[in-house]
Amino acid sequence: MDPQDFEMATVWLSGSIYSTTWIHILAVLPWIIILTPIIWWKSHRLNLLNLDEVSAIGIGLKKDREKMIFLLCCVGLVSACVSVAGSVGFIGLIAPHMARRLVGIHYKYVIPVCGAIGMLMVLVGDFIEKTIFAPAELPVGIVISVIDVPYFVYLLFKKRK
């Protein structure tokens, strides 16, 4: 493999928005505009999916159908975002926990707050990467991981108690 191609693949795997242009944004925008409102509109069904099997079926929720709709919407959103920025894994792991601590457990509120937190994490990570580590270019996924690890460890220790 060409060393330059290997370096670009490594940067993409660790998550980077370094070479992102407006064309990339326009490619992701339709997925966000179409799928995010569907998930938010069905957010009350996400709350019902937290119930046990008997209760959910008893209130008339078609659990398998709803899970499939949510799964397809989430796969569409994640694949569109990963195609542009690569794998920035800690956002999907930490942002929902932060959103639940801020607004509670109702998905009507968790979904937009989670998106805003994820957006802020990318912006802060990119800002830190471009200012502190300049002139070197460090993938934003690595910076976000370093920032979020203390919160992740806190969540792990909190669960054990």
Rank of each mutant, 00 (worst) to 15 (best):
D2K: 10
D2M: 10
P3F: 06
P3L: 13
F6N: 07
T10L: 13
V11Q: 14
V11M: 14
L13C: 06
G15Y: 01
I17K: 07
I17C: 08
I17T: 14
T20L: 04
W22C: 05
W22G: 13
I23A: 12
V28W: 06
V28K: 01
L29I: 15
P30D: 02
W31E: 00
I33Y: 00
I38S: 08
I39M: 12
W40D: 02
W40E: 03
W41H: 15
K42P: 07
S43N: 10
H44V: 14
L46C: 08
N47G: 12
N47Y: 08
N47S: 11
L48G: 05
L48K: 06
L49G: 08
N50F: 09
L51C: 12
E53D: 15
V54C: 02
S55Y: 11
G58F: 04
I59G: 00
K62L: 09
K63L: 04
D64P: 02
R65L: 04
K67I: 09
M68S: 12
F70V: 04
F70R: 06
L71E: 00
L71H: 06
L72D: 01
L72F: 09
G76H: 02
G76D: 08
L77G: 10
S79V: 06
A80D: 10
A80C: 10
V82S: 12
V82A: 04
V82L: 07
V82P: 15
V82I: 11
S83H: 15
S83N: 15
V84T: 12
A85D: 07
A85V: 04
S87H: 01
S87I: 01
V88H: 01
V88A: 03
I91C: 04
I91N: 09
G92A: 03
I94G: 00
A95D: 00
H97V: 05
R100D: 02
L102H: 05
L102F: 14
G104Y: 12
H106C: 03
Y107F: 15
Y107T: 05
K108H: 06
Y109F: 14
V110K: 14
C114Q: 03
G115Y: 02
A116N: 05
G118A: 02
G118E: 02
D126A: 05
F127E: 00
F127K: 03
F127R: 02
I128G: 04
E129H: 04
E129M: 09
I132V: 13
P135D: 07
P139I: 01
V140D: 09
I142R: 02
V143Y: 03
I144Q: 02
S145L: 07
I147S: 05
I147P: 11
D148G: 15
V149F: 14
Y151F: 15
F152N: 05
F152Q: 07
Y154L: 13
F157Q: 08
R160L: 03
R160K: 10
